[in-house]
Design a protein around this nucleic acid. Structure first.
Lengths: 198, 198
DNA sequence: CCGAAGTTTCAAGAACGACTGAAAATTGGA
DNA sequence: TCCAATTTTCAGTCGTTCTTGAAACTTCGG
C-alpha cells in the first residue's frame, strides 16, 4: 500500500521500520531453526526483541500471522528459556511480554538452558556407558581398549567444555567474556568485520 | 542371541562392546538432532568415531540399518564438515571412512563450518538491515531509534562472538583452549564433574 | 458467585525434512 | 575399450515436528 504523496499520515518511515523488523524477524527465525529452535519461536523472540515494546499474545498473533495456540506455546517457551519475561499493566487484564534487551544476558541464559537440557544428560549417559564397559575383562583385544580410549577422550572434552561454559554463565562470566574479547581482538582492526560482510 | 555357555566363540565381551557402541550411537544421535544436525548423520559419525576403525558404506548401512542412499549422503556430508576423511586401501576398490579421533580438532572443524554457514550470513544480513534503515530521517520517533540501538547491540555481540570463535579456530586455538580450561578449572576439584553426573 | 476476558491445552491435520531404492554415473582393472 | 564393482543422485514416500482451532480452564471484576 503505497503512501499518498503529501498525505498527512506519518511518512514511510513507519513502513520502512516495519520492513526492517520483518527482515530481522525472518533472519533470526532462520538462524534459530539452524540451531534447533523452532522457527516460529525464534521469530516471536525476534519480534519482541526488535520492536522494543511489550506485546501481548494478540499483538504477536496478528503481526506474525500465527494461531493463538502457537503464540501461547512459543511465548511460554521463551519465558522458560529465561529470555522473555511476563509483564503486567495495572488496570489491564492482559499479559504482556518483554524480551531481554542485553544480548549477552540472553546468550548466557540460552547457554545455561542448553547445558542443562542437552549437555548434562549427554555427559551422564557417557559416564554410564563408560562404567558399564569398564568392568569387562582387561583387554579382550585392542578394539575394546580403543573404544574405551575414545570414550574417555570425548568425556574429557565435554567436561572441559562444560567447565568453561559454567564459568561464562556464572557471576564471573561477564569478566571472562571481556577478557576473551580483548584477547580475541588483539591485532584486529575493529572495522575489519564490517568489510568482510559488506 | 544369548551365548552358548562354554562355547568356543569369544565371550560376551564382543556383545558388550557392541551394546556400548549402540548406546553411544544413540546418545550422540540425540545430541546431534538437538543441535540441528540430522540424527542419522550424527549416528554415522558416532559409529565411525566409536568403532575406531575405517568402515565402508556397506558396513555403515548394515550396522545402522539405513539405506545406501542415506549412508552415502551422510558420509559425504561428514567429509564436507571435515570431521571424517576418505581412506583408500590398495587392492581394494571400496572407499573407507575414518573419523577424526581428536575431539578438539572435531569441535573446531564443526565450529568453523557453522560460523561460515550460519553466523557469517546472519551477520551480513544484519549489516544490510542496519544500513537500509540508517538513512531514514533522523529520528522519526524513539521507536526507530530504539530499533537501531537494538540492532547495533546484537551486531556487536555477534561480531565479538565471531572474533572469539575465530581465535579458537585459528592456529592459536589450541593454546586459547588450554588457557580457558585452566582458567575455568581454578578452584574446581577435577573429579567434581563425575559426581555431578553419577 | 457469576460471567466475561484471557490463557492454556491437545487432538487432528498440515508442512517439512529425512529416507528409500532403483536408475544413472563413475571408477578402476583386465 | 569394456565390464563389473562401487558410488551418487533424486523423485517419491514416509515419519516427525509444527501448527491450528476449538474446547477447557483460569482469573478477576462486579
Amino acid at each position: 500500500m503505497p503512501r499518498v504523496p503529501g498525505s498527512k499520515t506519518p511518512p514511510d518511515d513507519a513502513a520502512a521500520l516495519t520492513a526492517a523488523q520483518d527482515r530481522f524477524i525472518e533472519v533470526w527465525g532462520q538462524m534459530g531453526s539452524a540451531w534447533g529452535i523452532s522457527r516460529t519461536m525464534a521469530q516471536v523472540h525476534a519480534l519482541l526483541y526488535i520492536s522494543a515494546q511489550d506485546l501481548c499474545t494478540d499483538d504477536v498473533m496478528d503481526r506474525l500471522d500465527i494461531s493463538r495456540g502457537n503464540a501461547s506455546m512459543s511465548l511460554r517457551a521463551l519465558v522458560e528459556w529465561g529470555i522473555v519475561e511476563r509483564v503486567h499493566r495495572r488496570g489491564d487484564r492482559k499479559e504482556y511480554f518483554r524480551a531481554e534487551p542485553d544480548p549477552w544476558v540472553m546468550f548466557r541464559a540460552i547457554l545455561r538452558q542448553r547445558l542443562k537440557r542437552e549437555v548434562e544428560p549427554l555427559l551422564a549417559s557417557l559416564y554410564e556407558i563408560r562404567d558399564a564397559t569398564r568392568h569387562s575383562r582387561a583387554d579382550a583385544g585392542s578394539l575394546a581398549t580403543e573404544h574405551n580410549r575414545r570414550l574417555e577422550s570425548i568425556l574429557n572434552a565435554f567436561s572441559t567444555l562444560e567447565l568453561v561454559s559454567a564459568k561464562f554463565i556464572g557471576p564471573a562470566g561477564e569478566g571472562l567474556l571481556q577478557a576473551a574479547s580483548l584477547l580475541a581482538s588483539i591485532d584486529h582492526d575493529p572495522e575489519q568485520q564490517r568489510r568482510t560482510h559488506a
